[in-house]
Computed example of a mutant assay.
Amino acid sequence: MIRTIAAVLLTCAVTACGSPADAAPSAVARQFTEAIGSGDPAAACALLAPRAKDALVATTARPCAVGLAALRLPHAPPATPAVWSSEAQAKSADDTVFLHEFSDGWRITGAGCHPRNEQVYDCLVGGR
């Protein structure tokens, strides 16, 4: 029994025991920025929340992938996101990405976001 507990504690120390809730938004934010950086806007569009995708299409008057490619979003790797229940925020050196957890997983609700003040962000895609 003591060996089992010690093994679990050692595993936690080695892996940093990150919360599983943090892993999913982190992976989605990373996939999004990697898709943008590699020139795959269709893959990035697949990660957008429906409202963010609809707003992008309405704003650019283009299909999602074409509109997203035209924006030239920053694509620096995001840091580990801050997660609050079903909301998350992942910052990089030159961007902030917002996420929301839907019934089918985490989706990007805002990208290309820069703070206007302490609580309001201006976003190229979606928004806060």
Rank of each mutant, 00 (worst) to 15 (best):
M1E: 08
M1P: 06
M1F: 10
M1D: 07
I2M: 13
I2F: 15
I2Q: 15
R3V: 11
R3Y: 10
R3W: 11
I5Q: 12
A6R: 15
V8F: 12
L9A: 13
L10D: 10
A13R: 06
V14E: 08
V14A: 14
V14K: 05
T15E: 05
T15W: 06
A16G: 07
A16N: 08
C17Y: 10
G18A: 14
P20D: 09
P20V: 02
A21E: 12
A21F: 05
D22I: 12
D22N: 09
S26E: 12
R30Y: 00
F32T: 01
F32D: 03
F32K: 04
F32P: 05
T33H: 13
T33S: 14
T33K: 06
A35T: 02
I36V: 15
G37N: 09
D40W: 00
P41V: 06
A42F: 02
A42C: 01
A43L: 09
C45W: 01
A46M: 04
L47F: 00
L48P: 02
L48C: 05
A49S: 13
A49D: 15
R51F: 02
A52H: 00
D54N: 11
A55E: 10
L56D: 00
V57H: 02
V57D: 01
V57Q: 03
A58I: 09
A58N: 13
T59I: 00
T60K: 14
T60V: 00
A61F: 06
A61E: 14
A61R: 13
R62Q: 15
R62A: 13
P63H: 07
C64I: 07
C64H: 04
A65Y: 01
V66I: 14
V66P: 01
G67E: 01
G67M: 07
G67C: 04
L68K: 03
A69L: 03
A70Y: 05
L71M: 15
L73T: 01
P74Y: 03
P74R: 06
P74C: 05
H75P: 07
H75G: 08
A76F: 06
A76R: 11
P78L: 04
A79L: 10
T80S: 08
P81K: 02
A82M: 09
W84D: 14
S85A: 14
S86M: 07
S86I: 08
S86P: 00
E87R: 12
E87D: 11
A88F: 04
A88I: 02
A90V: 06
A90G: 06
A90I: 02
K91A: 15
K91R: 14
D94F: 03
D94A: 11
D94R: 09
D95H: 09
D95P: 12
T96S: 11
V97M: 05
V97T: 15
V97D: 11
F98D: 04
L99Q: 04
L99K: 02
H100N: 11
E101C: 13
F102P: 00
F102T: 12
F102Q: 13
D104V: 10
W106N: 04
R107D: 08
I108E: 07
T109Q: 05
G110D: 02
G110C: 03
C113Y: 08
C113F: 00
H114K: 10
P115Y: 08
N117I: 03
Q119C: 00
V120I: 10
V120N: 07
Y121D: 08
V125L: 13
V125C: 08
G126F: 04
G127H: 01
G127A: 02
R128G: 09
